[in-house]
């Protein structure tokens, strides 16, 4: 216990600094370092944040599913907290994907929203985990809710490959009138690859930092409840 308390502040002190430095570097890369993409020009630069957010979102949902599976298996409250924190952070990044997507799409495709397979899949995932949050907040006092939420997170991840395949097939049946730009975002310059790598590292650091913060705030909330209950008992 004491070893954990001693080591925790170190990583908590390093993470914010590392995340901030790398994020500043990522911003410099995106706005200054990388060249304009040949066909799309400047708007394509949002791609770096868009893609990095998507990876962070997926990571969050998979961490949530893993922690939920562990929770169902061995029933430890730490696993439940981790699942909840991962969904919250994953939802943040997923929302960023859905915000940056249309901003990118508007100047390039001339429409805010297209039923591009990846965007479609992202929006479906967003709804699944939005329901997760609704479920958790709808019955805060129900002790069974953690179990139900864990079932949803596990089933949600089992659904991901099915969603992916069916959405691809579906868009194959209804080709978009708007010609989609190259799916890679048009990476051809090594500087672009470097930019994407730096941005991704920045987002991963941000992800881990936020995950720790969320987890910690959930732990403190439980601790507060415990102390409140103790106090109430002593008064009684």
């Amino acid at each position: 216990m004491s070893a954990r308390q001693a080591s925790a502040p170190v990583i908590d002190r390093v993470l914010p600094i590392a995340a901030t430095v790398v994020m500043l570097a990522a911003i410099w890369c995106v706005f200054v370092y990388v060249p304009n993409e040949r066909l799309q020009g400047a708007p394509q630069r949002i791609f770096y944040f868009h893609v990095s957010s998507a990876w962070a979102a997926f990571l969050g949902f998979f961490v949530a599913a893993g922690a939920s599976g562990l929770f169902l298996w061995r029933g430890r409250v730490e696993d439940d907290r981790m699942a909840m924190a991962a969904v919250e952070v994953g939802m943040l990044f997923c929302t960023m994907v859905l915000v940056t997507g249309p901003i990118w799409a508007r100047p390039i495709w001339g429409a805010w929203w297209t039923w591009d397979p990846r965007l479609t899949m992202t929006v479906i995932l967003w709804t699944i985990y939005a329901v997760y949050l609704v479920l958790r907040s709808s019955a805060r006092d129900d002790p069974q809710i953690a179990r139900y939420a864990a079932v949803l997170a596990v089933i949600g991840v089992l659904d991901v490959p099915l969603i992916q395949v069916s959405v691809r097939l579906w868009r194959g049946m209804h080709p978009s009138v708007l010609s989609a730009p190259a799916n890679t975002g048009g990476i051809e310059d090594p500087r672009m690859v470097a930019g994407l790598v730096v941005t991704t590292i920045a987002f991963m650091l941000l992800f881990v930092w936020l995950l720790r913060l969320c987890y910690e705030s959930l732990r403190l909330r439980d601790e507060l409840h415990r102390l409140e209950d103790r106090a109430r008992e002593l008064i009684r």
Binding site: I124, T127, V131, L135, L152, I155, S166, V167
Partner: peptide
């Protein structure tokens, strides 16, 4: 419906 509809998307499409 909230729980099931998002998960049903692949089934409905197919």
């Amino acid at each position: 419906p909230l729980l099931v509809l998002p998960l049903l998307v692949p089934l409905v499409i197919c």
